[in-house]
Nucleic acid binder design. Sequence first.
DNA 1: GTATTTGTTGTTGC
DNA 2: TGCAACAACAAATA
Length: 301
Amino acid sequence: MPELAEVEFFRKRWHLAAAGERVVRVLTQDRGKLLRELDVPAFRRALLGARLESSEARAKQMLFRFSGDVWLGLHLGMSGELTVENPGYVPGKHDHLVIVTGKPGRRMQATHALVFHDPRMFGRIRFHVGSEPPGWWTGIAPAVLSPAFTVPAIAAFLARRRRAPIKAVLLMQERFPGIGNWMADEILWHAAIHPARPAGSLNPAEVRRLWRECRQVSRAALRVIAGRGDRIPPDLNVGIPRTWLFKHRWRPGGTCPKTGRPLAHATIAGRTTCWSPARQKSAAHASRRLFQLAGRPSTRQ
DNA sequence: GTATTTGTTGTTGC
DNA sequence: TGCAACAACAAATA
């Protein structure tokens, strides 16, 4: 489930509950590969007694900074969630990490249980001790909403991936951090670009539209989904505007909110993809147009 | 029983 | 070499 804005929502949820509190207890459950990168005893030792000082979300990842130069990195994978429970919470089958926190003070009473829940276990838990943030965090690509996300940078990236479908390229975190399956479809729909078009077939106006819609969709998603950031679960069906593709894509017989025409579904780039054929021109149309554009100068000579 | 899933990584082949 | 395609990971749900 979690893409950019939902990840930010979950970060806020833990942060609002436990910022400034100290770790009283750490429970881990080693199933699958979730803790594979973790030295569990060292992890528990470092975290116990540490205070949650700050946190940040980038792309689909979160970083929680604790006192004593302790950094906790989380990736929610396909099905991960962060919840806040009562301190006596008993971990369920898919609760892989539970951090119990308490208000600093002489009695150090436990107040919250921060729960990392992930049934499909594609998530990731990482841990680092040091005065600087770890490389796996600082190496994340500059955000879509940062000044480094420019039209020329996007154009250069599309040129390098010119044979891949644009849908596949939008899912590449090295250039489009935080964008996942539904956001990619939403962006392409807003930009009126067919998801199967080769990335290299987009003309400059289309590249610019793609750039703009990456930013618009990210900004709006953060506002309506992450903005609430409390214990209420993120409900995409409440927050997202009715005018977006998202609200129609899984409805049986769903239609494009802009054209009123039927939506199409297919696997593109190995992922379930939804688009509006009336609005997003097919690869064949696009290449014919490209051919005409390319041919124009030569006819003039 | 089958097919589906909002993510990433490693391998293979061009 | 760099890029593109795909299987694999694991478990719930329809």
